Every structure is written in structure tokens, then in C-alpha cells.
Amino acid sequence: MDKLSIIVPCYNEEEAIPIFFPAVEKVVQQIYGLKTEYWFVNDGSTDNTLNKLRKVHSMHPEQVHYISFSRNFGKEAALYAGLQAAQGDYVVVMDVDLQDPPEFLSEMYSIIKSDDYDCVGTRRVDRNGEAKFKSFLSNQFYNVINKISQTNIVPGARDYRMMTRQMVDAVLSLKEYDRFSKGIFSWVGFRTKYLDYHNVERVAGETDWSTWKLFKYAMDGIADFSQAPLSLAVWLGTFSFIASIIGIVFVIIRRLVEPSSSVFGWASLVCLILLIGGLQLLCIGIVGKYVGRTYMQSKHRPIYIIKEKQ
């Protein structure tokens, strides 16, 4: 009998948990020859999420398990903790808000068992119901990162996917502190098939992913899987240097041709100084981003700390 581990990160999801479990159970119970275990990961929630998980665990102690962090470490840490805890032959990552349709589980299992795939993922073909500006930024992120990175990330791809034990072990072998799972899932390789679906609204609660948080998450993804920003800093510095040399030559020639010419252009000079200074700060900031990530990795801090586990 195959065993399926279902990993569910949770942050302030007290309303969604009681709806999620029966909805998923209704689907998996119809899959023949499959035993399931659930690993809910409470990512330092400030509401009643932990008590809800305790209740579900008490009702299904052999099937439902949970991990509770000492504080909020982020969704990436929650995913990693769930993958480490999962014991199944196949592992699924799902959001608790049911934006990841449970009815796909049966099709995923059928494909991964019969079609020689290592992973079956999902991809949203639209973002109906989301803010247009947020959707625009998301689309541009995929356009940019796929142009500057050697790791291809499928546009609209979700974390919602079913993976073989071999692929999960490969993902766990990457011990990096700053994690970007969408990129990691692609980087490890393995044969993957994507199922398309239309955007689904949350069943309860509100999302914690603001536009600013998504933007920072996208920047982390670019820093993790591309060195293009460092190349940009080099090119900006080179351009600024060449432009300054041309400017100096121009000033010298002008002085030789017109010895009596007076100094002019204070405003433009100040603008140029500010421009060059800004470029320098930008390049230092880009380099600092990468140095900072190396610094955090060198500390060897744990990706998460568990306070309670059942």
C-alpha cells in the first residue's frame, strides 16, 4: 500500500483548517490502495490555529500530525519542515485555504504512478479575483527571472504538487538558509507534468501575502537563482567610468580650444555627481544583497525551531 504525505503550511488559518481536512479526506478516501498522513505546520500563528490543529490531531491521532514553530519563520521554512517530517512514498504540498483544488489529487496520483513522472505540479492560467497590479507584478517576475536565470520556472506554477520520494530527498539535500521553493523544485530536475486550472478563491480567512511581501519574495528568488544583478552592477560601473573619461577629455579639449572659456553648468554638474553617487550606492546594494545571503548561510542557524510536535 502506497503512503501519501500531505504537507500543509499554516499561518493564522483557524477558519480554514476545519474546512480543509474533510474536503481533502473526501478525495483521498476514493483513491484505491493509498494510505495518507497529514503534516500541518503552524508557522508561529497568532490566532487559534494551534488549538484547531490539536483538535484535529486528537480526533485522528494516527493520521494527522502537526509541527508548531517557536515563532514565524516563513512559508519556506514551513515547507522544509514538512518535507523533513514526511514519511510517505509520495509527498504533496498544499495550501490550507483550498486554493489548491483537492480533486486534482486523484489525477496526480494516477499520472505519477503510470506515466513515469517524478512530479505532477499545478499551474494557474489566470488570476481572476486578484488585484490587477499584483497580477501584473507576478507576470513580470516570471518574465524577468526566466530571462536572467538558467533555472526555468513555469509561469503561474504553484507549490501545489505531488512528488516521488526520490525527488523529495533531492530537495532536502539542498541545505540553503534562504529558500525559494519554486526555483528549487525546478533546479533539482526530474520529469514534471503540470495541470492547468483557473484561479480559486480562498474558502475562509484573508491572505497574509501583501504586494510588498510578494515583491520581496520575488527579489529573493532572483538573488537565489541568478547572478544577473551582479553583472548589471559591473556594467553600470563600466558605463559610468567610460562616461567620466569622455567627460574629462571633453573638458580638456574645450579648455585648449577656448582658453578664455568660463566655468559653467553647475546644475548639470551636481546632477551628474548625484547620478554617479546613486549608481555607486545601487551597485553596492546589489553586491551587499549577495554578501548578506552568504553571511546568513555562514552562520549555520537552523531554518526553523520547533516548539511542539505531534
Rank of each mutant, 00 (worst) to 15 (best):
Thr192Ile: 01
Thr192Arg: 00
Thr192Glu: 10
Lys193His: 08
Tyr194Leu: 11
Tyr194Ile: 08
Leu195Ile: 09
Asp196Ala: 11
Asp196Cys: 08
Asp196Thr: 14
Tyr197Cys: 04
His198Ile: 01
Asn199Pro: 00
Asn199Trp: 05
Val200Gly: 00
Val200Glu: 04
Glu201Phe: 08
Glu201Asn: 15
Glu201Gly: 15
Glu201Ile: 05
Val203Arg: 06
Val203Ile: 08
Ala204Asp: 05
Gly205Thr: 09
Gly205Tyr: 06
Glu206His: 05
Glu206Arg: 10
Glu206Cys: 09
Thr207Asn: 02
Thr207Leu: 06
Asp208Pro: 00
Trp209Phe: 06
Ser210Tyr: 09
Thr211His: 09
Trp212Leu: 11
Lys213Cys: 12
Lys213Pro: 14
Leu214Gln: 02
Phe215Lys: 03
Phe215Glu: 01
Lys216His: 11
Lys216Gly: 00
Lys216Ser: 06
Tyr217Cys: 02
Tyr217Met: 12
Ala218Val: 03
Met219Tyr: 04
Met219Thr: 07
Met219Trp: 12
Asp220Glu: 07
Asp220Thr: 02
Asp220Ile: 03
Asp220Ser: 06
Gly221His: 01
Gly221Arg: 00
Gly221Phe: 01
Gly221Leu: 05
Ile222Lys: 02
Asp224Thr: 03
Asp224Glu: 04
Asp224Gln: 13
Ser226Gly: 15
Ser226Glu: 04
Ser226Pro: 04
Ala228Asn: 06
Ala228Cys: 05
Ala228Trp: 01
Pro229Trp: 01
Leu230Cys: 06
Ser231Asp: 08
Ser231Tyr: 02
Ser231Phe: 04
Leu232His: 00
Leu232Ser: 08
Val234His: 13
Val234Pro: 09
Val234Cys: 11
Leu236Val: 14
Leu236Thr: 12
Leu236Gly: 07
Leu236Pro: 03
Gly237Arg: 03
Thr238Gly: 03
Phe239Glu: 11
Phe239Arg: 12
Phe239Gly: 07
Ser240Cys: 13
Ser240Thr: 03
Ser240Met: 03
Phe241Pro: 01
Ile242Asn: 11
Ile242Pro: 01
Ile242Trp: 01
Ser244His: 10
Ile245Ser: 09
Ile245Gln: 08
Ile246Leu: 15
Ile246Thr: 10
Ile246Pro: 05
Gly247Val: 09
Ile248His: 07
Ile248Met: 13
Val249Arg: 11
Val249Asn: 04
Phe250Lys: 10
Phe250Pro: 00
Val251Tyr: 03
Val251Gly: 02
Ile252Glu: 15
Ile252Leu: 12
Ile252Cys: 15
Ile252Arg: 14
Ile253Met: 07
Ile253Phe: 10
Arg255Trp: 04
Arg255Pro: 03
Leu256Val: 07
Leu256Lys: 14
Val257Trp: 07
Val257Tyr: 13
Val257Lys: 12
Glu258Trp: 04
Glu258Gln: 10
Pro259Ile: 13
Pro259Arg: 14
Pro259Gly: 08
Ser261Leu: 09
Ser261Lys: 13
Ser261Tyr: 14
Ser261Glu: 11
Ser261Thr: 15
Ser262Met: 12
Ser262Glu: 15
Val263Gly: 14
Val263Ile: 12
Phe264Gln: 12
Phe264Val: 13
Phe264Cys: 07
Phe264Pro: 01
Phe264Ile: 15
Gly265Gln: 03
Gly265Ile: 07
